[in-house]
Design a protein around this nucleic acid. Sequence first.
DNA 1: CTGAAAGCGCTAACAA
DNA 2: TTGTTAGCGCTTTCAG
Lengths: 367, 367
Amino acid sequence: MKKERKGIHLIAELANVSIGTVDRALHGRYGIREATRQRILQIARQIGYTPNLAARALSTAKSAIRIGVCIPREIHFFYDHLWGGVLDEARRLTQLGVMFEYRPVRALGEQDTKAFKDLLKTGVNGIIVTAGNPKDLSPLIDEAEEKRVRVLCVSTDAPESRRSSIVCVEPWRNGSLAGELMGKFLPPNSKVAVVAGMLTALDHRKKTDGFSDAFPRHCPGGGIVSIIEGHEDEDESFQKTFDLLGRFPNLSGLYVNTVNCLPVCRALGARGLAGKVRLITTDLFAEMSPYFAKGTISASIYQQPYRQGQIAVRIMSDHLMSKSSLPPTVYLSPGVVMSSNLELFREMRLAPANLDESVFRYALAQE
Amino acid sequence: MKKERKGIHLIAELANVSIGTVDRALHGRYGIREATRQRILQIARQIGYTPNLAARALSTAKSAIRIGVCIPREIHFFYDHLWGGVLDEARRLTQLGVMFEYRPVRALGEQDTKAFKDLLKTGVNGIIVTAGNPKDLSPLIDEAEEKRVRVLCVSTDAPESRRSSIVCVEPWRNGSLAGELMGKFLPPNSKVAVVAGMLTALDHRKKTDGFSDAFPRHCPGGGIVSIIEGHEDEDESFQKTFDLLGRFPNLSGLYVNTVNCLPVCRALGARGLAGKVRLITTDLFAEMSPYFAKGTISASIYQQPYRQGQIAVRIMSDHLMSKSSLPPTVYLSPGVVMSSNLELFREMRLAPANLDESVFRYALAQE
DNA sequence: CTGAAAGCGCTAACAA
DNA sequence: TTGTTAGCGCTTTCAG
């Protein structure tokens, strides 16, 4: 009784060729007659051949797939969890032979062109990057894509570039979800205000626009009476909010579109308006928890950083391992956090991703 | 210059033993002196050894890991997407040598003990199951766990059993999120009603309880004036809702805690109350879309079926492949769907999972 | 108790 | 243009 062959061996047997030839046919390599290739591909299709990725990974261990990652390393909040998703997923893939090159930057947009260039030089097959300053980065991204290095933006886009894919929550939609929620929370003719980081940042501007679009549509007669910029400064945010609340005593809602919401909470408290003025915030971190409990924060729009990281790594590796096509856009829905579901979010339970020192060895050496 | 060895070869070299002995030490197999084992484990720890899963998968292809899946096959809605998540994740793992046994049941709780027994007999290493009737299933689950077959409940729990893990959105929390949202949508002293499937179903009861708990806490003076049961019947749901709206003309909100919300939308329309009475629904499917657009549905509580399936397969295979511990509970946060983020949900974009016929060959043969 | 060796399915280098 | 062969790191079987 003959032994059952599998995979390329089976194809080879059926086609009366060697496995070497099958390999050439399957991978479009040089040195095979077109007729042979077609015959082999035909057979492969017939038996429904799918490569055994474990075997492939094992065999190509030397020339393994390598993925570069360039994401900000910032204490607290968003990026820790983005890293968490990236590293958890990367760990799994490492066991399967995929390799990762990490080039964290200190803050969003800081030195990222340098880190990106560096990754390109190491010869990775794909790069995952948060495009902090799209302007400078775009030509580099295009250059990478030209060299067949796939670039995937995560969280922050470089829309003008030729990046293969983007994984994010769209800022405009983020804002409009906040606007819809606010509109439904408040009675008609309500007046609200927006606390932005800085409107020069495209991201904050778009969130503000989304909010401004959606709010009046869901709150008849409602309007936005003021937009202030906190510039991510605690004191400035507090003071400006405090002043704002004095200027508009009939204000019923406040939307904070940056992560920096604590000063706003405090200003509401100082005016005795906690729970009276509806507050919708952005993102999530443990220190916000008491303000949910007290009712100061009505809801927060959550951008799912962990999942963004996870998905980014996942679709990149899927693509590089199986030649499956990269989805050009993955737009996640932001989550809505309120007191009932607050504790289900990882930000409330886990310490921020424990960023293994080794990940940052490179970065540290540079500093 | 000596060749760099890797993995167990490296350990073997350092410990001056053969790879066979290393293997015995690492896996606690018989036939090795305790002293030798300790020495080897020590070295493994020192060099931070992690097994190459690709190599393992390849090597153990014959005695590969097998995972059984027992989930309802129901047209439309929830389970299609649960299947979608399961199958997408399973596909990836299949390429890596993990095998899957599918035993779909026709509807939740229908014949699931039979399917479960069947899976046990085939000798799978783990079982993923939606526990439709926990009472009958629990002893079988316990039996499986006794035999070291891991059981993971997904979407519907069997809390009394010894199942290793549960992946779901907790019904109580689901309801309380709806209650909080409703409470924040409505002014104080509002009266609302609940449309349940049937209160004998534990799931619907708990959702109702969660809602009843949260709503009054977020709507001072608010109360629930009626709870009706639609029994998943279109006509009954419509008629009862229609009557309800007649009986309580001052009703301001309606919470539907079953997927079957279209009759309620129609009843609201028939009474001319669409958009006047706040409607919060459960789950999501394409036919709901126009009711979001018209403002009939204010929000829906989304249970993330795709993700539940994905996570279930993922943690089960992670566990079986790496001996990593199974998290005993994975409670997901339900999503909040409103008109702004509606189109980001897969239910709006994709046809329900295209359930490959082969998955159901077994089931079909049985019918 | 321990070592040696075959082989999992695939890739890549070399031979023919 | 095609065939042959040596591994990749691990498990497993059979000798010692």
